[in-house]
Write a protein that binds this DNA or RNA. Sequence first.
DNA 1: CTGAAAGCGCTAACAA
DNA 2: TTGTTAGCGCTTTCAG
Lengths: 290, 290
Amino acid sequence: MGYRPNATARQLRAGRARLIGYVVGEFAGEPWAYLDSPYFARLTGATSAAALRHGYALVMLPAGTLQREWADLPLEAVIVADPVQDDPLVEDLLAARIPVFSDASVAGRTGAHWVDIDTDAAVRESLDHLRAGGARRPALVLPDSTTRFHRETLAAYRAWCARHGTPERVTLVPTPGNGPVVRAVEQALTADPRPDGLFVVAEASPPLVMDAARRLGLAVPADVRVICVSEDESAAHADPPVSTLSLRPADVAEEGMSLLVSALEADGDTPQGVLLTARLRARKSSMHRN
Amino acid sequence: MGYRPNATARQLRAGRARLIGYVVGEFAGEPWAYLDSPYFARLTGATSAAALRHGYALVMLPAGTLQREWADLPLEAVIVADPVQDDPLVEDLLAARIPVFSDASVAGRTGAHWVDIDTDAAVRESLDHLRAGGARRPALVLPDSTTRFHRETLAAYRAWCARHGTPERVTLVPTPGNGPVVRAVEQALTADPRPDGLFVVAEASPPLVMDAARRLGLAVPADVRVICVSEDESAAHADPPVSTLSLRPADVAEEGMSLLVSALEADGDTPQGVLLTARLRARKSSMHRN
DNA sequence: CTGAAAGCGCTAACAA
DNA sequence: TTGTTAGCGCTTTCAG
């Protein structure tokens, strides 16, 4: 017959709603713009998938809001992807004794768990790769953001430059979006002396980065070797194919959810974390032999 | 003091959980791949935003699953974005008496509401625009999918060709992704006689479509005028800037959520729907004067 | 105006 | 085995 048990009543009885909140700390200005980023799109999808597989459903929350604005949702935990520095949301959540899952910036705090990328190793590998391709003066194009990954990327880049006795060439991108990033790339490539390597951390469509170099009359990789931090599949189809550093959103989601679920299930307040290694996909844009 | 009311108990008392499910009917093979599409990314974000604004939270559900797989979620309604033809999920939901919100393919069914794009008008406007730019033999690059929009696009294209006495030139793209679409574009552009207009409905990075034409030695728009159905912001920055037909995901989400909420609140079983007009953004890739 | 009680729909424990 | 009951935490109603 057509009987369907009442899910809410079961949840009340069980004492758990099997619901996990998901917020992105970045892009506070445009609360949902983060889905336009291939990285966050993948991360969000993979997180949903992993949650479902563990028997939890994911509730999408708008970036830049506080716990009190959706306090009437029975969330067992909240995932805060890429929080900004001293994110008030993280504090709010922790104060409300709601388990938080985020990146390494919450490491050590009670009720907080995390997964993150080994930024230092990733930046070092990328810059070493550019150097191996002949780039002696690699420039960095970085979003002007206080995300842990971006802060650490800048620090790692500076350390690398110091180690190699190379002056730093950093162009900050004020806002997300293809337009601003392309302008920053052009700016970086027209500096004097011109960089012979480019590490584009700000998210942009890789074909557009190639277009920018072409417009300036620069050959990639002969004149400038390029690596983009990107999950955008179009990198492989660009002309030339663009080397990418993948932050492995699918694996981050997978590993993170396993950790979160065991923490929830074990009722563990003991903070735990996992560190993953980024993956460099070398393509033609960075491979050059003199 | 630190008292926090139990959300589940309140929901049980209130008899409503203020939770709405969200599934995409397409991409059944890769349940979460839809977020890689700028269209669905926007649609998903905007739907979340609109839901929250109306006091509902959105729960992400994997494409290609059935109601029974997440039956223990207290969903007041489920949004099925772009269902495939005779989608079993829609039937499943309707049978379980869960209100469904989807596209025009569910129009008229009890407990179902919808919002959709006027496909016929959109296709006609696009092809007329290509023709006004001098394209006498426009070709169509279409995903091999049974979504209502894709079915109706094909029908509208055929009707337009018949009306103008032009033979049909249709290239079907077997699977989503930049690679397959770019190959289909190349195939379409190397047909004999070569088309002088291209309506790319399959989602691809617009700069890559320009790259494909360039590789074949074709000038855009002089040799071939191009319109892409795309929400990808990179279209505006491509070389040349690519004309796009926007399916207005943000407005679809907005209008749809208003309708859904009033249906839920009014307890209305009477089917209702809204039809929106797509927006053509003419850029250089389609503007040519002989 | 303050306080007690009923009941939302379920499940787990217990009684028959 | 099958049937009854208590109680999850809240809100609303009703009594004091």
